[in-house]
Amino acid sequence: MKVLVAVKRVVDYNVKVRAKPDGSDVDLNNVKMAINPFCEIAVEEAVRLKEAGTASEVIAVSIGDKSCQEQIRTALALGADRGIQVDVENGVEPLVVAKLLKGVIDKEQPQLVILGKQSIDGDNNQTGQMLGALANMPQGTFASEVVVDGDKVSVTREVDGGLQTVRLSLPAIVTTDLRLNEPRYASLPNIMKAKKKQLDVYSAEDLGVTVRRHVSQVKVAPPAERQEGIKVADVDELVDKLKNEAKVIS
């Protein structure tokens, strides 16, 4: 079984991103970039499926300019077998990413496609589901457990109040939630090996996709700042403030 796993290059999750003073965009100068945390979980899950003998090949794909090859190499160092970069400008929106991934699916015919549930830059939480619709595949989103069983996959999903399990016909889409697994660290020998793994580059035209804008960013602004409050000396003062000043408890 071939597994396709999508990875995105995003700002490192520790970075506090700010709007540029002129409001034209966010300021990403000299900011550390990394693989999106949920995508890292997706890679780990795919590699575990391969280690368990369920998957025969793991292909890591990223959509973006040449810089995203760095994140593909990270995925290769974690255990993916080969990589695909779809060379488009950065910041392509989810629907277009989904169309490009559909193009890759048509070429590679994977049985399972694993993506992160959301990227921590745009916070859209859309691509996996859109890909499901475009490829007419079922989806197990926000997955905390994935069990492949013949031509089906059971996915346990994080839902309000608990967990839900669905059974999907393969080929299928899975998007990862936090508790699916704990990604490994890449070892130095594996990082070296990753440099030699195959990495193909496609253009949007190769995949028959026209890149266009459906939603454009007009401007960005910082959120309304919260006024810093006060420190209270003890529990008595806290209870008093909540009762008599904030009036949120009685």
Binding site: P94, L95, A98, D123, N125, Q129, M130, H214
Partner: peptide, 23 residues
Amino acid sequence: ATVSCKNIMPRVAALLDVGQISD
């Protein structure tokens, strides 16, 4: 933008070939 609708709506948008504006 609840867990259930986050699951469904992007699929709707793709079926309609439109972008989704989340959240």
